[in-house]
Design a protein around this nucleic acid. Sequence first.
DNA 1: CGTTCCCGCCACCCG
DNA 2: CGGGTGGCGGGAACG
Length: 848
Amino acid sequence: NITGFLFLAVQENHSSEPYRNVLKTPLKQTATSHSVLTEIQPDCQPLTTPPKPQKIPPADPWTPTSNLKILISAASPEIRSREQRRELSNNTSQEHLSGDEYEKSHPSRKEKSLGLLCHKFLARYPDYPSTENDFICLDEVAEKLSVERRRIYDIVNVLESLHMVSRLAKNRYVWHGRHHLFKTLQALKKVGEENKYTQQMQMIKKREYEQEFDFEGERNEETARNLDSSEHSEMPFVELPGMEFHAASVNSRKDKSLRVMSQKFVMLFLVSTPQVVSLEVAAKILIGEDQLEDLDKSKFKTKIRRLYDIANVLSSLELIKKVHVTEERGRKPAFKWTGPEVLPESQDTKLETTSTTCPPPVSESIPSKEQCSKKLFPLRGKQNFTRHPSLIKLVKSIENDRRKIQSAPTSPVKSSASTDQNVSASPSKMAQVPAIAKHQLEGQSKKVRVVKMELSQSALECALSLPEAVPKPEAPLRTASTQQPALTLPSSAGPPSHSSVSPVILPHTPPGVPYAIYLHPSQTHTVTTYSPSFMLQPLPCTNVTGLKSINSKVLNKVTSEEGDNQTATDDPTKPLTAKERPPIKSETSPQRGLKRSQALQENNLIKRFRSDDKSLNTSLTFFPSGYLIPLTQYIHDTKAGSADKEKAGICSSQRAIYSSPIAGVIPGTASELKAVNIPAFHITPLNIMLSPTSIGAAPVASNSCLNSSNTSSVRNPSPSVLSFTLQHVGLITAANPALQHVPAPSQPENVSHSSENTLLQEEKFPNILQNLKLQFTLFFFFSENNFLCSLQPCVPRESQAQTATEHFFRTPGGPNTGSSLSANSDGTDRTSQGPLYIPQRKLEVSED
DNA sequence: CGTTCCCGCCACCCG
DNA sequence: CGGGTGGCGGGAACG
């Protein structure tokens, strides 16, 4: 009948045209023809082009759920309004016709976007269908949404990659909604880790740096080698245990790329610390393996196109959101993970969290249930990697100062994740926390208290675990590594036995003991250290991963960038801030000079750094990686030096410090930065202030932390304790497990509380950190008997979050700290940052 | 002009 | 061999 007729006609049009040079993309002509036809025959719906203008505006017949509209509008308000306007005008004007020209006005391209289409699609099905019998007929859907079938495939394929649907038979799919989503994500994360995606990303970024910055000077074979080494055979399609082969019969086994690509893409988010993935990097990784440098431009382009398709769907699912990463080279499109945080493989402990995490309000019960079965993949397997060795190496190298850093072949990160021990520490955990907490930001005072209590406990625990004195950096590391298991384990499913370990080890470190912070390997960049004396020096770090040569260069570069780049901010509001970073007189300048420094320079720096430390008595050493290591040789008097308040601020790279498996991690976070190549620094610097004996601090400590529970003061607030505490406080998920496991040293009651509290903390922090992309400063105060720490976010993104943070860690009247930092009145204002504030400029996330 | 990404040709593959 | 799938890339729309 007519419809058919139209269809044919259209087709013909296309087919006939092709010979000439008719472009594939429907030109206006085509459109025109459609419209004409349409007008003639009002009924036709098969055509892709939405014939009836009215259709859309009036009422969406197909969507029973009114939500859809909301969603859509939410998705693109502007567009909506604009469109509507247009439509109205058109309608009015549109009487019969002449207006063939109106043509394109209607179907603005956006209206046809995959994202919007996906929203419509999703609106038709519940997030958590009660029955598993929700079937989807592709034809039907396509028709209802008035789009070509082809487009539906695009959507369904990615949904399938997340196991939100599964193919039943030809043209038929089953709708699962988000029931399996979390499990799927866990599985994906795991696979991603196994594939060393984190490392790969790192490598790519490094390469980029090298290229743009460094001449080819050293082509690193190493890099290439490493890449190759990761001989990840193409991973197939990740399936969930429960539903592996739904339609075995009908299924074509050939795992199509879109599906797999989608999974890989998601993996990147789950694995990367900042949780921001730029298209460029993603494309490279996905193209992957081939590894040939040949910039197959077309291939790359195609990949990007596909990624956009996938990203649009994922965005509709609200798993990611588009952002822009600003780099020196300009801004690059990227996406940020906004979905639930996925814990490594935690077990039931985290169920609640996870369930809560699920965005949709729907039933929370469901998820938890499913999560129980998490044994998707057997743990054992490749977990042999040890990150410890690598760490150790780093340490040594540093010590030697001359040495280059060698990185372990395997990325520590991954290993940690995979490894049973380390699991708990993984950064990801932190991240996930966020969602949960939001509800309770308000009653903070109470919470604060609780938290503090927890901290103290945790600290104690930590303290116990830590080794006392370490003569040399190495020693600390080792000890740390050794210990890690104990601390870490608890969080993970680790056998109880491990947990038991915690208690004894460290009696107490002397109060002022310096420590080294080990940054997460992935972060490797330069680390800046503030010595008590206020000197700021960059430390080049190698990354564990093993790109030594690269690292050095990169690091240097980064450093330089830091200074300069920050200055140049795209965001007009905050440009200046960058400079402030070194409130203290810093020696930044030297750093800048470093641009692409040679090994020599590095060495020198290191050396210098060390020497300074010693001379200054600075106890603080920063290492990239994630561990906090107490250093034995602490000289307490000096630090105090000029003022009590002096602090040694450390700017860590964006991510700040990650927790060591053992120690806590300080998640620092700046999440997004990382994704970009940009050195973390810029983005989220972490400042740590240490004062050996700070007056102000002491009071605080006594008040809040310890006292709450009665525990008057911690026995010996050892620095190690502090560090741990901080970590716990801050952020680390790892902490949780630990806390829980803790035997409850002193007060049982507290313990119980603590657990609760812990949750709160975590939630809040992670949220803040991630959402805000915060930059925050940690202040530590040590007194002989007490230690105090405060965490202040430098960049407020969301008022609430920020607020929460402040309360949490408010410094007592601490001189500089509280005031300056807390200064940010509301989250929005970035400029207000105190002197310490370090601008994060590099990554700017543009909210949509 | 660069980014985003829609459209639909056409190769596969399966029944 | 017909029809479902979906890779793929041109080039339009958008900013």
